[in-house]
Write a protein that binds this DNA or RNA. Structure first.
Lengths: 146, 146
DNA sequence: CAAGATTGAAACTTCAATCTTG
DNA sequence: CAAGATTGAAGTTTCAATCTTG
């Protein structure tokens, strides 16, 4: 039951995925934070409220779509509610409904412009069209087996 | 100077990179933490001490190889020193030299076995040989332009 | 002064324990 | 009881300010 060490190519793939993911994400999050005042998690929460729920979602549905543990989401929502980006309301049938505020709508609208610029600059524009296609296919096949 | 929204394929690529990176890294880090008692950052620091410096490196060189801000590294090293995984020593010529301890050597040796198993299970074994090659090439071309 | 390093505060994440209410 | 949610503590990360010393 010996486990051979990783081959050079396995190690390279591991390091490349780790670094490419961290680099691109941290650059985009820095742009979002500097130019729109939203962190990456803030952006993810507000995007889902708008795209999946027209501005409001049950907290449990939001947790599932983020694939976050409930306590993580709860802490994040507390910070965002304190900043008036959203509010918590009792949901019909029990549980909690999360509603975006007007201020939250303004923030996510502005952040989306920054996000589009930033993703182009740090990701899509750095890849040839062919590389974009194969990268997407390979990453999606990796995700599919999660 | 208008910025068009991201296309469907640009968004898919963004989400796929974000999620694949997060999924694989979090699974491997969970395995490391459960089976070897090291976090991902612990593993990265100890690996570099062993591979790049035979067990010791200047803190400034370590910071550069990790591509971390110095304060992040300083906090991390404080926690690791508290756990006796490494120690700080004055370096000749100024600055600080970081030395792995015996306990740190044992921890990284055990962790590498776990890491190899985990990377295979969560990354390499999930990809066809062809996908592994194209994924590596695309990720490295992304990194090259950092 | 300037590079190398530390510190403290605030934000973020995880875990386990607890609370609330159908 | 059981699903949905909160809380508190400890670890992690970032930022800005500060300290130290050639």
């Amino acid at each position: 039951m010996s486990e051979p060490p990783l081959s050079v190519d396995e190690l390279r793939l591991w390091h490349a995925l780790k670094r490419a993911g961290e680099d691109v994400m941290s650059k985009v999050e820095l742009d979002l934070s500097r130019s729109a005042g939203l962190s990456g998690p803030d952006f993810g929460v507000l995007s889902r409220l708008v795209d999946l729920g027209e501005g409001a979602l049950r907290q449990s549905d939001l947790a599932e779509s983020m694939r976050w543990h409930k306590s993580r989401l709860s802490h994040q929502l507390s910070r965002m509610a304190r900043r008036k980006l959203l509010r918590r309301v009792d949901a019909e049938g029990g549980g909690v409904r999360i509603e975006i505020t007007l201020q939250g709508r303004k923030a996510i609208a502005a952040a989306r412009v920054v996000h589009a610029q930033s993703v182009r600059r740090h990701l899509t524009c750095r890849l040839a069209a062919q590389d974009r296609r194969v990268l997407l296919a390979a990453l999606e096949s990796l995700i599919r087996e999660s």
